Structure formats: C-alpha cells, structure tokens
Computed example of a mutant assay.
Amino acid sequence: MSSGTRPAGTGRLVTGTAWALLFLGLWLGGAGTDEGPLGSSAPTTGDIAAVGRPPGAELPPARAPLAPVAPRRVEVPSLGVDAPVVARGLDGTGAIDPPPFEAPDTVGWFGSGTEPGAAGAALFVGHVDTETRPAVFYGLSAARPGAKVLVTRTDGSVAEFTVDDVQVFPREEFDAAKVYGPREPGRAELRLITCGGTFDRATGAYTANVVVSAYLTGA
C-alpha cells in the first residue's frame, strides 16, 4: 500500500457510499493478515470506554478553527502516544489505506479529508497491535474526557484538542455518519480510531472499533 497525497486546503469529507467504503477500510486488524494475537487484551464493548462522556463532565470551550494545514505528528500525553503522522488515501476498493503493518508506531491521517484544526472532523487511524507487541493505539480505550491531544502541523503550529467522548462500536452497530461526521457544524474536531473487541482468526479482523472524539480548544 502506498501513501496518499493531500490537495492543499480542500478540507472535504467523504460522503454517501464512500462513507461505507471508508468504514470497511478501518477494521485495522486486516483480513487475511497475521496481526492480532494480542486481541484478547484489546478493548471490548464491555469496557468503560463504551460509556462515552461522563455526566456533568466540565470541558473547555471550543476554539475557532484554524487555517487548513496537514499534520506531521500526534501526541496523547496521558497515554504515552507520540507518533509520526502520514497521509493515507483510498485503496483500489475505495477503502482507507491504514499505515502498513511494517509501521505499527505510525498514525495514518485520511489525507483527502479535513486537516486537523480546520473546520470538520479530521480522521486519524492506527493499529492496536502486531503479531508480537502492542502498536501505537493499543491504549486508546484508556483515554478519558478532558485528556489533551496535540497535533503538530507541517507549518510548525500545534493544534490542541480536548477529548470529549470515547466509545466502542461493534461492527453491526457502526454508524459511519456519526463517527466520521462533525458533531457540531463549523467546529474543528478530531477522531482517533483503532481496533477493539476481539480478534476473530476465522475472518482475520477485529469485531469492533474504538473511537476517541476530540475538539479544538487551543493552538
């Protein structure tokens, strides 16, 4: 798989049938691969992560969106995540190309979508594990509302996001529009997505996705 390229400033989101195709490409366990033996310890739909935002949680106000600039690196200090970001496009079937299995500590950004910090929802995807060890987003389900996500952009600016929701979506209950679309019109948002549930060796894929949602609160 090869990295996608990003036309500057388009900031568009995939819609219609392409949403369903994008969803199919985000089962990062990967059909027909040997990834996933650590799946028994990956987040499941019974995790506390599935409760979303705790009632009464006080979160900072949203900041106005920034100019569209591509990402270079993402950090989630509370989880120990500090990883390079590469643009990924769609493969021949119309599904998003996750980072190659040979780069488990790299995060993929859907480069034909929204830039992090610009209005809309930017999509970041990463593997949960490999055949032998945890990968970049293994601890993603431990994220909690109020946690910070820092995205260093290619112009040197840093967009600061605040987590407001953490959920686990089983395959049969996945709502692509809800996950990938912005929660509030005009707001700059971010999604961090990885595998969850259990690893099904018969299909070579995980049974759920962990989705961390965040919104821009500083720069």
Rank of each mutant, 00 (worst) to 15 (best):
A20D: 12
A188V: 04
R72A: 10
V76A: 11
R88I: 12
T15I: 01
R201Y: 11
I96E: 07
E131T: 14
R191P: 09
F169H: 15
G36E: 06
G146L: 08
L13S: 14
G94S: 01
P71E: 08
V211W: 09
P55S: 15
F110K: 00
A214N: 11
S141Y: 10
L150R: 12
I96C: 02
V149R: 01
E131P: 03
A83Q: 04
P77W: 07
R171V: 11
R187W: 13
A205K: 09
T33A: 07
S213R: 15
P77L: 11
W27L: 03
T194Q: 06
R183S: 12
G94W: 01
T203I: 05
F137Q: 07
G16A: 10
P185V: 00
P77I: 11
G117I: 06
T207Q: 03
C195E: 06
T130K: 04
Y206R: 02
T194P: 12
F161M: 08
G46M: 03
R63Q: 04
V151L: 05
G92V: 02
G36F: 03
A208V: 08
G218D: 15
V85S: 10
V179F: 00
F174K: 07
D175I: 09
S213C: 00
T132I: 10
R63A: 14
G29Y: 02
G11H: 05
L22G: 12
A143H: 12
V168H: 07
P55D: 07
P145W: 14
T132N: 12
T198R: 15
V163W: 11
E75P: 01
F110S: 13
V85M: 11
P116H: 10
P55K: 14
R72Y: 02
P55Y: 05
